[in-house]
């Protein structure tokens, strides 16, 4: 029967250190296989392109006459709701007197997960 002796403690300690190092490297490798997928899921879920697109459409609509603007506004709201499952509304008003800008534009976007509100003057 082996007796308790204190030889070779350094070898045992080094063995522990090396095995724990391998263990943490294995964790890093196992994470690397899923990182691209979670990033892609997050990118797909976030409606970046929708918001950018609605925004540019609202800005180009701000040059329309008031009749056309009302109709285009309804177009954007109805089509967003039925095709993109998003509530989109915007308002274009004259900037307050004395302001260096001509118009104030307010945009509201909400698709149930992501909400975006903006007030801009131009």
């Amino acid at each position: 029967m082996a007796r308790l002796n204190d030889d070779a403690q350094w070898i045992v300690l080094m063995g522990f250190i090396v095995s724990f190092a391998l263990f943490f490297l294995a964790i890093v490798i196992s994470q690397s296989t899923v990182v691209g997928q979670t990033t892609a899921e997050a990118v797909l879920e976030f409606p970046k392109n929708d918001i950018v697109n609605v925004r540019s459409e609202v800005f180009s609509a701000s040059a329309l006459s008031s009749d056309n603007l009302t109709r285009v506004k309804n177009d954007i709201s109805s089509l967003s709701l039925s095709r993109k499952n998003a509530i989109v509304s915007f308002r274009i008003s004259e900037a307050p007197l004395g302001s260096p800008y001509n118009k104030t534009i307010e945009i509201h976007y909400n698709n149930g997960v992501t909400a975006y509100d903006e007030t801009t003057s131009h």
Partner: peptide
């Protein structure tokens, strides 16, 4: 961990190419 690293990607897990 070794068992965890060998998970296979099925065609449903195609988010990267979708993006």
């Amino acid at each position: 961990i070794i068992v965890g690293t060998t998970s296979l990607y099925t065609p449903g897990d195609s988010h990267i190419s979708d993006m």
